[in-house]
Nucleic acid binder design. Structure first.
Length: 292
DNA sequence: CCGGACGCCTGTCGGC
DNA sequence: TGCCGACAGGCGTCCG
């Protein structure tokens, strides 16, 4: 099956959509919803690791740790997927090129299909990750105690996240607001794409110092972040069935974008040209008329 | 404590 | 046409 949407570089003539190859929070949530019905309550028959060299190497004893265990529940924390087992949990991160599908174990693996979590029912959860920025780790620790999860900020769609919260955390911070909201200790799940989109929606300049933004504008920003993420999750619902196809679509979805990758194109609000700059080593896009 | 830079990795694309 | 450098990005880690 042809790729649904082709990737458009930031300087190309008409980039309106971007392939959802970059798992941000909505993609992870969509993955969770797609795979959970196929995994919950199932027993792990085998773990096949074809290439253990991900972000951190998959320890050699991981298969022994998880084989025979039942997957009790699946959860998401930030961009981490948590598979709760009878003993311990499996942490899974998609990095920036990871994707998950549920397939018959007989489906031949392709290049970059690094891991199969095989179930007793003849299916497997297949993890593909060309750039290998993802991770898979078993840990006996409860999620709250794990070093990678312990210091994470609140969920942007949860009750602890608000403009008042952001305002309080930003006090004294001189970092650009874009860097600030991409800090997972401040709030989880806001990657580069959605940071750009949220700031445009909230009409805040991405370079503005976080500590110099009013409470009112933080209210707007918190709402923008929630709306942008919730909309993307809602779009993802339409492609859930792709998770059980074996013909290559990883089940992600295309996202319509206001500013990301749209350098020199008209701002959707005022028609002025979208600007591009670098903030914290990341490409940033904004409208210099709308965002202050 | 804070902020900025770096490195991991591969596929894609522009330029020569 | 082929090669090569730049770029994309999450995020832990290191350094000033």
């Amino acid at each position: 099956m042809a790729q649904l949407i082709e990737y458009q570089s930031s300087r190309s003539a008409k980039p309106e959509r971007v392939s959802a190859k970059m798992p941000e929070l909505p993609e992870v949530e969509t993955s969770l919803r797609g795979i959970a019905p196929h995994l919950t309550g199932r027993q792990i028959a085998q773990l096949i690791v074809r290439n253990p060299r991900l972000r951190w190497p998959i320890p050699a004893d991981t298969a022994a740790r998880v084989t025979g265990q039942t997957i009790v529940a699946l959860r998401r924390r930030g961009k981490y997927l948590l598979l709760e087992l009878e003993q311990g949990l499996l942490l899974l991160h998609l990095g920036m090129s990871g994707s998950l599908r549920v397939l018959p174990v007989t489906t031949p693996p392709e290049l970059h299909d690094h891991v199969d979590l095989c179930l007793e029912d003849g299916h497997c959860l297949r993890f593909r990750d060309p750039r290998r920025f993802g991770m898979l780790q078993w840990t006996p620790a409860p999620a709250e105690a794990h070093p990678l999860l312990r210091d994470l900020g609140p969920e942007p769609l949860g009750p602890a996240f608000s403009g008042a919260y952001l305002h309080q955390r930003a006090r004294g911070r001189r970092a650009p607001i874009k860097t600030f909201i991409m800090d997972s200790q401040v709030v989880v799940g806001v990657g580069n794409i959605y940071a750009n989109e949220s700031l445009h929606l909230a009409r805040i300049h991405p370079k503005r110092a976080a500590g110099r933004i009013s409470g009112e504008r933080f209210d707007r920003l918190a709402e923008a972040i929630r709306n942008v993420l919730a909309d993307a999750i809602a779009q993802g619902g339409t492609s859930l069935r792709d998770f059980v196809q074996e013909d290559g679509n990883p089940g992600y979805f295309a996202q319509s974008l206001r500013v990301y990758g749209r350098t020199d194109q008209p701002c959707p609000s005022c028609g002025g040209p979208i600007q591009q700059c670098r903030i914290g080593q990341r490409s940033s896009f904004y409208c210099s008329a709308c965002q202050r």
